[in-house]
Design a protein around this nucleic acid. Structure first.
Lengths: 333, 333
DNA sequence: GTCTCACATTACATCGATGTAATGTGTAGG
DNA sequence: CCTACACATTACATCGATGTAATGTGAGAC
């Protein structure tokens, strides 16, 4: 049987509340009793029961993290940052996968209400459907990435500007037939809309007419479907001069397809991605990408979340994370 | 304020216990009352408090998952499988990162005792130090991968046999100077020992003398350190005919280095990895690897864990997951 | 010597859900 | 008509930690 406050109290010859006082350090305890209690805790190998504590003071010390696809390297790197930052601050992280299913995103909110979670960091995919209903009765929510959502706090990278800058960078060595990969066919994800918008804005700056046939759709943002989409595209269309993939994962799939076709990168076509995942740095050739500080995303998200736990005051807060274009071998002229 | 059983009971005109009975379905409840209660729950938007439930019946419905490096694609894929299988069975997953720090592995056991976790799935790295002390007072633990640990259940792939088979496969087209990448310099990880052992066993079968200068050490199993280690190696040593990397992640780093040096794969050197991560399939060239069913690992681990929760009977149980060699472009002759 | 005030400590109730034992209600058998 | 028994339901206690209000203990002031 595990020891409880009662056991510790008995052994130290004090009341349970005194043991609690020693642990929480809010109510003052005299030095000698504190010592006796601490020794008793040591001897009994006491570990507080978090369920009981959670019940009593309405906090569990756990935050939820919900990502669309846990197998994606980008998700993994975000998860790592959040888990590490959370641990530094004494939080545990419960992880969930939404599978870009709006229904599941909703279900998570309910689970959060079940109160094993004091807050939720959610990376939503679908636009309006994921209109997470942040009511007063719900624990605080911080969203990651692009969403048009008016109520919850949000940490994001300016995808529009980043996509624009990347397109401009790709265009520099005189390339004009620039394709994008990752446009959605059906329901547009907010991220896809932003990045496509930035791409189009860059074309305008460059004085290049938008060409629908250069916008390659790919509903699932995985290397597999990117590789397949590009393969099918190349069967029908001529080779563009540059290819901007909306994520690094897709870019890896694209590189594989280009290699299979015997198309040289960057000589025949320049390729770029978005997210700066580790495997992109070691791709063949190493991948030009939009980079940003994932650790900063994590710490800002956690800051917003914990501040929001204190009081439910001020309206929606937005934190923008800086990005920068990192040119690597896949786009060098 | 969130509704409680009490509120639901009052609204349905029954006692709190009856509400509880309706939810748990063990004690029979007459159809009409059940209906009234269910309606009341609906109306009040009732969600049970998991902290309270956890306190009362000693179960939280949460399992812990501890991995050495969350950013690694392999970890991410394992995490995904486990989260998905766990959800299917109604479990939540709390995720932790050990950073291959044995101290942290120990700390996790304590956290588990704090009882927000009903069980722990742990992928340990260090050999003896991680001798997780599985006592009667601790929640059940299932280990993933190679460890010499006598007490906890374990799910694993036979790394020794797999490494041997992969070495033999690499040797087939007459290659004899086969190098391995991933040997540890200092404290050997159990996995490294197994895989190095399998490699050496294959050499014996092939009648090739073991050559220490073909065993490239790389303490951190990341693409970055693999790339660097191989770069330094090639500065001093002649090019081997084949390179067996102990993980796919390292192989990706190696491919990048080889490409930078202008060495062609597989023409100049064959390369293989281990784990069959998604990005390996889309590497340039696509990566030969040891593949195994990660979903099976997840469901077996969960099965062992939940069975162990019932009673603490039978001794250590081991579940072996089958592997197979998948030959892709990086090693085709 | 008594009164006050500060401060450490304690008894008790509480958070929400649920097991236990007891109560209430009905039906069948004698 | 009464007893017996199955079955649905209830009152109460409990899980472990902690806030509240009350109690106990001492030092210092008059």
């Amino acid at each position: 049987m595990r020891a409880t406050v009662k056991d510790v109290a008995r052994r130290a010859g004090v009341s349970p509340k005194t043991v609690s006082n020693v642990m929480n350090g809010i109510v003052p305890v005299s030095a000698p009793t504190r010592l006796r209690v601490e020794q008793a805790m040591e001897e009994l190998d006491y570990v507080p029961n978090l369920s009981a504590r959670g019940l009593r003071n309405g906090r569990s010390g756990v935050i939820g993290l919900a990502l669309p696809d846990l197998a994606t390297p980008f998700s993994a790197e975000i998860a790592q940052s959040i888990v590490e930052v959370a641990h530094e601050q004494g939080w545990s992280v419960q992880i969930e996968e939404t599978g870009s299913d709006p229904h599941r995103e909703q279900e998570l909110m309910t689970r959060a209400r079940a109160n094993l979670i004091d807050g939720l960091i959610l990376n939503p995919v679908v636009l309006k459907e994921s209109a997470v209903q942040v009511g007063v009765a719900l624990p605080p929510v911080v969203l990651l990435g692009e969403v048009t959502q008016q109520l919850a706090d949000r940490v994001f990278v300016d995808s529009f500007a980043a996509a624009r800058d990347m397109t401009l960078a790709l265009a520099k060595p005189g390339r004009r037939r620039i394709a994008v990969l990752g446009v959605n066919r059906g329901r547009q994800s907010a991220t896809a809309i932003q990045r496509a918008g930035g791409y189009e804005a860059a074309l305008q700056v460059l004085g290049i007419a938008k060409d629908e046939s250069l916008m390659i759709s790919c509903d699932s943002w995985t290397p597999a479907s990117a590789a397949e989409a590009l393969m099918e595209y190349l069967d029908v269309h001529p080779l563009p001069e540059a290819l901007f993939c909306f994520t690094d994962s897709m870019a890896l799939g694209a590189l594989n397809t280009l290699w299979k076709r015997g198309i040289r990168v960057p000589d025949d076509i320049a390729v770029a991605g978005f997210d700066d995942i580790i495997d992109g740095r070691f791709a063949v050739p190493s991948l030009t990408t939009v980079s940003f500080d994932k650790r900063a995303i994590a710490s800002e998200a956690l800051r917003l979340l914990t501040e929001r736990m204190g009081d439910r005051g001020h309206g929606q807060r937005l934190v923008e994370i800086k990005y920068r274009i990192v040119e690597r071998d896949s786009s060098r002229s």
